[in-house]
Design a protein around this nucleic acid. Structure first.
Length: 321
DNA sequence: GAGTGAATTTGGGAGTGCGT
DNA sequence: ACGCACTCCCAAATTCACTC
């Protein structure tokens, strides 16, 4: 049974399957081969210390006779190795020390009364996460209704160099009626809050959001000394689109851009490409088709989403690297 | 048990795709 | 142009089945 996310308010069946939860963000990378585990080995004097890959089981039985495993990896450099073999059960315990917010939330039997799905899109003054700023923001609550759509230009306070992309020029945003980000954030917060259900969560959806839109949003909130509410989750539609395009049998590999997805689902665009509202309206339709196509339930949506701390730790890690 | 070769798995680097 | 995630390819490491 497959239900579009757009039917949130009428949604009754919440779990189609948990198989979609392939990329558990925030967890340690799991070795795809259960037999192979990394074992740290060092010599007694501590001068040699390196990682080797070793069979978790040190012996196997073949045709009734016991047989030792690869002898080459059992001794290192002639010294007596101090090894710590980690069994699969221990690895599982290490990898899942806590239940994440998403896992806890996904267990809820009445997710439709908790979640608000808001599709967003940003236009920016450039591609640099450091130097560029948001110049337009649009959002749409998939549940629809009165005041479900939000759109505004933003005065970035910096020059716009990529007007050729979106057509937004400096003179369009440097006007008294165009809010600056610090003025807009409280308005945007009120908009999202007005769409949320009592005690519920908002899932902010954006295409390539993890590496673009969400980073800009988090940076702008931080720059303006605002905190992103704890009851916001973030969902990137790009991996979902890639999964969908991968499953399509076609002679030419299909792209996962928003425009290509619109064409694939035979959707018409209302407005110019690379304008926030136009892209949001298209992404809303595309996202609904993707959820149907990929049989994505609300719990899958929650499990594949990110908390703000998931995203900020990823940003911090990238800065460190 | 030792040795061999095919099959499988992993990790790194290069290239590509995605957003504006 | 910027920066991140993903994909593909290849070499190296490792496992496994088999023979002697």
């Amino acid at each position: 049974m497959c239900i579009s996310i757009s039917q949130v308010s009428r949604f009754r069946v919440h779990l189609i399957g948990s198989s979609c939860y392939e990329r558990v963000h925030g967890c340690l990378k799991i070795n795809s081969s259960p037999r192979l585990l990394d074992v740290r080995a060092s010599s007694v004097d501590g001068t040699k210390n390196r990682w080797i890959r070793r069979n978790a089981s040190t012996s196997t039985t073949t045709q009734g006779s016991k047989r030792s495993s690869n002898a080459k990896s059992s001794v290192l450099g002639g010294a007596v190795p101090i090894t710590r073999i980690i069994d699969a059960e221990s690895v599982t315990k290490i990898q899942q020390p806590f239940e994440t917010l998403q896992q806890r939330l996904a267990k809820n039997k009445d997710l439709s009364n908790l979640l608000t799905v808001i599709v967003t899109d940003l236009e920016t003054s450039g591609l640099s996460r450091v130097k560029s700023r948001i110049i337009e923001i649009a959002a749409q609550d998939l549940a629809g209704g009165v005041n479900s759509t939000f759109q505004t230009l933003v005065n970035p306070g910096v020059p716009i160099f990529n007007a050729n992309i979106h057509g937004i020029r400096n003179d369009m945003v440097c006007r008294p009626e165009v809010p600056r980000m610090e003025e807009l954030i409280p308005i945007f917060l009120r908009y999202v809050e007005s769409r949320q259900k009592p005690g519920g969560y908002a899932i902010i959806v954006a295409h390539n959001g993890k590496t673009f839109d969400f980073q800009f949003l988090i940076n702008e909130f931080s720059r303006c000394s605002f905190e992103i509410p704890d009851n916001w989750l973030f969902f990137d539609s790009l991996p979902l689109a890639r999964d969908c395009m991968k499953s399509v049998e076609a002679e030419v590999k299909l792209k996962a851009t928003l425009s290509a997805l619109g064409d694939y689902f035979n959707l018409s665009r209302d407005g110019e490409a690379h304008r926030a509202l136009s892209d949001v309206l298209l992404l809303s339709q595309v996202f609904q088709r993707l959820t149907i196509n990929q049989k994505l339930s609300l719990s899958d949506l929650v499990l594949r989403s990110y908390t703000v701390s998931d995203l900020t730790s990823a940003i911090a890690k990238n800065k460190k690297d």
